[in-house]
């Protein structure tokens, strides 16, 4: 008998959505940490470091996320590195995130007036305190809307995990569509779940951006 797309099936999708959220949070945390390093490297003094980080960013912004994930998941095991799907996705998505957040945060660090950094230096404040207590808190405010927009992109990007076989929201949808033969309803529901995960973030981002523009 063919199953109808009902509430039990919808609950199955929601269970998949849990992994979408977990995957996004893990990738955002790991990628954000690495992204901070990329951003600091991008505004550092040594020209070689800056160039290196620029190339790193270019590589991840100039290739599709899908190819990056395939490379990690299918390519690395041939070199003898054992990667299970969660490890592969965490590595792939984190590297991707670090490049994009690195570029966003580079922009926000450079948008902090140079006088702030100079004043800190004049007061004899060292690099670590200058960055973490003076520049970065201000850059954080400026970069917040773009960071949240990227988080939305990342959540949408985790849908690609379905193509690697992780049963997150999109893959749950594929399974349900195959069982119920109601792809229109199933993919519609999947889309709506993504929509209601992402919409509050998009709304937040737009609101913060408006408020920052008024303050300026």
């Amino acid at each position: 008998m063919i199953r109808e797309f009902g509430s039990a099936e919808f609950l199955f999708l929601l269970e998949g959505a849990r992994w979408t959220v977990v995957l996004s949070l893990v990738a955002f945390t790991c990628g954000g940490t690495l992204g901070l390093v990329v951003a600091l490297g991008r505004v550092a003094k040594p020209a070689l470091l800056r160039a290196l980080m620029a190339v790193y960013i270019q590589i991840f912004q100039g290739t599709p996320l899908l190819v990056q994930l395939f490379f990690v998941y299918f390519g690395l095991p041939l070199l003898g590195v054992k990667v299970d799907i969660w490890v592969a996705l965490t590595i792939g998505l984190s590297l991707h995130t670090s490049a994009f957040l690195g570029e966003i945060w580079r922009g926000s660090i450079q948008a902090v007036p140079g006088g702030q950094s100079e004043a800190a230096r004049a007061l004899g404040i060292g690099y670590v305190h200058r960055m973490f207590d003076v520049v970065l808190p201000q850059a954080f405010r400026i970069g917040l809307p773009a960071t949240i927009s990227f988080l939305v992109n990342l959540i949408k990007g985790t849908a690609l995990a379905a193509l690697l076989g992780l049963t997150e929201l999109t893959r749950s949808g594929q399974l349900m569509a195959n069982i119920t033969f109601q792809p229109l309803q199933v993919y519609g529901a999947v889309g709506l779940i993504y929509f209601f995960i992402c919409l509050p973030l998009t709304y937040c981002s737009a609101r913060i951006e408006r408020r920052l523009n008024v303050a300026r």
């Binding site: 690609l160 519609g188 992402c198």
Partner: peptide, 10 residues
């Protein structure tokens, strides 16, 4: 606010 992958499946 939805992934393009879901859009193409839809």
């Amino acid at each position: 606010n939805t992934p393009i992958l879901v859009q193409v499946f839809f």
